[in-house]
Amino acid sequence: MHFKRHVTGLIFCFFYVVSYFTNKYVLSVLKFTYPTLFQGWQTCIGGLLLLVTGKLGWVNISGIPRSAAISWLPGSFLFVGNIYAGSRALSRLPIPFFFTLHNASEVINCLILKLTQRERIPWMKLFSLSLLVISAINLPLCDPQSEFGGYMWALVHLFCVGAYRVFQTHFKSTHLSDLEQQYINYLFSVLLLAFAAHPTGDLFGALEFPFLLSPRFHSGCCASALLGFFLLLATVKLKSGLPLELCGIWIILAKVFSTCLSPLVFNMEINPPSLCCVIFSHVGEALLIYSEKTSQI
């Protein structure tokens, strides 16, 4: 039983690392900085694969009631903001820095719950959140690259991620599974990003992209879409088979693996202060999981 848990976690880590590395390769190395097209392609393929695998009975996607789909649209809107801003930020920031900002979404999550439900925050959880905030605030000041635009998009990304988690956790519906929620996200994303491709200038910009006919670009885009779909399935499998705190541990491990391996794959500038911000962010995330576990005892 424990061996199966480890296998599920390791599979999740593999797809997590490879998926982020593939996206980073297309966005930064090939410099395909047209997120409406890139994310639209990924969500289109993800939606089609969910539809096909659902029809074949490989995943459980039943008929989605119209009322449930409509009530889920705010979550889909936050999902689009998450992937669009995340794509912009990842194209400009190194993966370790991106995760440091991404981890701060837990602060947005707790802040929204504190304002709406007046939840009391234990001191251990407050300390871990403080580490996440301090790391995220100080990282732009310590970053030798000083990529202001990347940090602004990362700020939008972490807000959308935190708000999405709150909505997903407190969305009371017996009609939608995690895969069905993601299927609605995919459909909404494809429609919204398709309409946004022309106003943002991504459509005409992509036509002048120098690697448009390159096999590297085509293989990278295909791999990113497929890996994103497999990561979704691995995430759902992980959450359905493990307690919440163990899922959190595997997610942290996946981020640590990505952080440690990324300097071996991508060129990046990092100094001791920015490295400390990255380390403290991961420590804060680990303490957050520990504080949530101890509060349940």
Rank of each mutant, 00 (worst) to 15 (best):
Q168P: 00
R216N: 14
F280W: 13
F21Y: 13
I289H: 00
G75R: 04
E245Y: 14
N60E: 13
Y84V: 15
I249E: 07
G9Q: 06
C160F: 10
F266V: 10
L50H: 01
L192Q: 00
M124A: 12
I184R: 01
L158F: 14
L238V: 04
S214Q: 05
H2D: 03
K125H: 07
F230H: 12
T43Y: 15
V17I: 11
G241C: 02
I45L: 09
K239C: 08
F195K: 03
T116W: 03
C142N: 09
L176V: 02
G86K: 02
I95T: 09
T33S: 13
G47V: 05
L101F: 15
D178R: 05
F209M: 08
R120V: 13
L231Q: 11
P273R: 08
V283D: 09
K4Y: 15
S258W: 01
L264N: 08
Q296W: 06
G63I: 06
S71K: 14
L176Q: 01
L158T: 07
L226C: 09
P144D: 07
S105R: 09
L132Q: 03
V26A: 15
F195A: 09
Q168G: 12
W58A: 12
L10G: 04
S128K: 00
I184S: 01
A197T: 10
K31V: 11
L287K: 02
L50C: 07
Q296L: 14
P215Q: 07
K237V: 04
L244H: 02
N23H: 12
K172T: 15
W41N: 06
